[in-house]
Design a protein around this nucleic acid. Structure first.
Ligand code: MN
Ligand code: MN
Ligand code: ZN
Ligand code: ZN
Lengths: 133, 133
DNA sequence: TCATATTTGCAATTTTGTTGCATTTGTTTA
DNA sequence: TAAACAAATGCAACAAAATTGCAAATATGA
């Protein structure tokens, strides 16, 4: 339940935040800013920007940036918070339907680079998704 | 030489384009828009936007999008063009110096996802770079 | 129910990106 | 090497996106 999620992250439960979360929960794919805007209905843009910022800070949502200037957002799984914001999953963007999905991998690739201390790896894939293929 | 690069991609050799390329060639890391702006000196913003668009279209530069809304650009290696814009290298962002590097990997990871037709994979890594570590 | 910090909504402003158009410039051809 | 012409530039106007300050509203704990 959305109110619980907000409480868990120690921020206040407000109608606007609940509304934004409901838009996220309604879909299986990641949302662009304009997806969100049209999902919300009437809204004040400043409040939306601030809500997104808060959700990102608190580890409630994460950003997905893909080649082609595609920028989306998706709910984090349990466990993310202000300090820990790590996702061991892949982001797939479908060139056909333009949807972006978070996909868990059976095995997350390990990469070692001499001299570099790799703290986190993100994988972005493009192609044709299950639904479109 | 920069003029050759432009000719290879069938676009005209102009002072502005040469200047922009020289900024890219001066550094080993990827550049943000404002890096470019300060590197160029005086410039017209419209021309810069159009130059960037042309360079992206032609496969002269590529965009790098990293978690945290980080957006940079870097020169492509030989072989990219309007139709083929694929890079088998990793993008590493250093949390300490904030620089972003294109790094060739000895072996590029293969990923298979049931039902998905993966055409391209991008890997972004974060941590501490060789210089800072 | 009250006190208070948080959140919201609005106006004003700034920053970023786009469009149209006249002028200039690079390249090709004769 | 001059002329022809398409491509590129620079400027002004515009449009869209994002930020800031502040007063009013509201969620929460006491
Ligand atoms: Mn994700
Ligand atoms: Mn690169
Ligand atoms: Zn699809
Ligand atoms: Zn570094």
């Amino acid at each position: 339940m959305s109110a619980e999620l907000l409480k868990k992250h120690k921020i206040r439960v407000t109608p606007f935040r609940i509304k934004v979360l409901s838009v996220f929960k309604k879909t299986h794919s990641a949302l662009s800013l304009s997806d969100l805007e049209s999902g919300i209905g009437e809204f004040d843009r400043v409040t939306l920007y601030r809500t997104i910022k808060t959700f990102l800070d608190k580890g409630i949502i994460h950003e997905i940036l893909m080649p082609g200037d595609i920028k989306k957002m998706a709910l984090c799984q349990d466990g993310c918070n202000t300090h820990l914001h790590d996702h061991k999953h892949l982001h797939f963007h479908c060139d056909s339907c333009q949807e972006t999905f978070c996909i868990d991998l059976p095995a997350y690739p390990e990469i070692v680079l001499d001299g570099f201390d790799i703290k986190q790896i993100e994988i972005q894939a493009q192609g044709v998704c299950k639904n479109c293929g």
